[in-house]
């Protein structure tokens, strides 16, 4: 709100956007990045511990990795339900959005929220309002890539 770089003698429709951009307070980028690094890293560490556990239980590496992600998804669903995950997101930012737990949060949050509209038009219809684009775009891209590799012999 303080440090204006340029002196705006006149503010008009044409320079208003740049004026607002320079006037608006900025996020503290370093703080945000450190939190994202710590929280995102820690979630991955939990994943790695789970992988180690499943390998010890005799599963193969790939299955362990898949199962570890699923356990994280389940944990995120529960922490979303008891109202912890959204508080984490307040300061962790991308650190809680980018891991698979953020994907789970994106599915569970609208499900809880739209419970009041019933099981079909509420939970059923709204569950993928945030995460739907991920699956739709992901599956489409994967199919195209796989078809291309089939064509060109990958």
């Amino acid at each position: 709100m303080k440090s204006q770089q340029k002196d705006y003698a006149q503010i008009s429709k044409s320079n208003y956007k740049s004026y607002v951009f320079e006037t608006s307070p900025k996020s503290s980028h370093w703080k945000n990045m450190i939190w994202a690094f710590l929280i995102g890293g820690l979630i991955c560490v939990v994943g790695q511990l789970l992988i180690a556990l499943f390998i010890k239980l005799g599963l193969d590496k790939e299955m362990s990795s898949t199962l570890a992600s699923s356990v994280l998804v389940a944990l995120a669903a529960i922490t979303t339900g008891i109202g912890i995950y959204d508080r984490l997101g307040r300061f962790a930012g991308a650190g809680s959005t980018i891991p698979i737990t953020g994907f789970s949060n994106a599915i569970v949050a609208p499900a809880i929220e739209f419970r009041s509209e019933g099981l079909i038009y509420g939970i059923g219809a709204k569950m993928f309002t945030v995460a739907g684009p991920v699956i739709v775009n992901g599956v489409s891209v994967a199919v195209i890539i796989a078809l291309l590799t089939a064509l060109f012999g990958g």
């Binding site: 307070p25 996020s27 959204d86 809880i112």
Partner: peptide, 17 residues
């Protein structure tokens, strides 16, 4: 919040402004 932005439980990063 849920009509204009996101569900309440979604962990979103709120912009400082």
């Amino acid at each position: 919040e849920r009509q204009y932005r996101f569900p309440l439980e979604l962990g979103v990063f709120r912009s400082p402004h």
